[in-house]
């Protein structure tokens, strides 16, 4: 896939994060979708998010990148597992994300909300994106 902002490593973190946040077991379900003109467009949520973030103002882009790296590197600190986020089991990943979601610290909750809603933007924008398209169900 052609990325505009995130590195391949960052895209891998993002893919796992999307699967955890939206509750799907197969992170690559929406890789390619036909358009009404019969062409095929890469609609992977990661690609949608990458394109969206690439157009954001520089400061916001930088914050999102930092947030993603923090998420990747902190399982040891918050759940005591000496692994990267992308190497956690699904159960451990959920427990780890919950520590961010329900943290006493506003900044951690802010990072959780920002990343959660970004993954929703990528995932639920698949297809036509209007309310009559329920292909995400």
């Amino acid at each position: 896939m052609a990325l505009k902002f995130f590195s391949p490593k960052e895209a891998e973190i993002l893919e796992i994060l999307i699967a955890c946040m939206v509750g799907i077991d197969q992170p690559d379900v929406f890789k390619r979708s036909p358009t009404s003109e019969g062409q095929s467009i890469d609609y992977a949520p990661t690609v949608i998010i990458d394109d969206f973030v690439a157009k954001l103002p520089e400061g916001l882009r930088g914050q999102l990148r930092q947030a993603l790296h923090l998420f990747q590197w902190c399982p040891m600190i918050f759940i005591g597992k000496p692994r990267l986020f992308t190497r956690l089991s699904p159960q451990s990943a959920e427990a780890y994300i919950r520590t961010w979601a329900e943290s006493r610290f506003g900044l951690r909750r802010r990072i959780f909300r920002g990343l959660r809603d970004l993954t929703f933007l990528g995932y639920y924008s698949h297809g036509e994106g209007d309310g009559d398209d329920h292909s995400w169900l």
């Binding site: 955890c20 946040m21 939206v22 509750g23 979601a101 959660r116 929703f120 924008s125 994106g129 309310g131």
Partner: peptide
Amino acid sequence: FGSPVLVAASMPAFGHEHRELMENY
């Protein structure tokens, strides 16, 4: 109300719990 993206962002939770709510869209 809104598109699935906007509704998803307004909902609580994440993961399977969130998905279960979205199935009620």
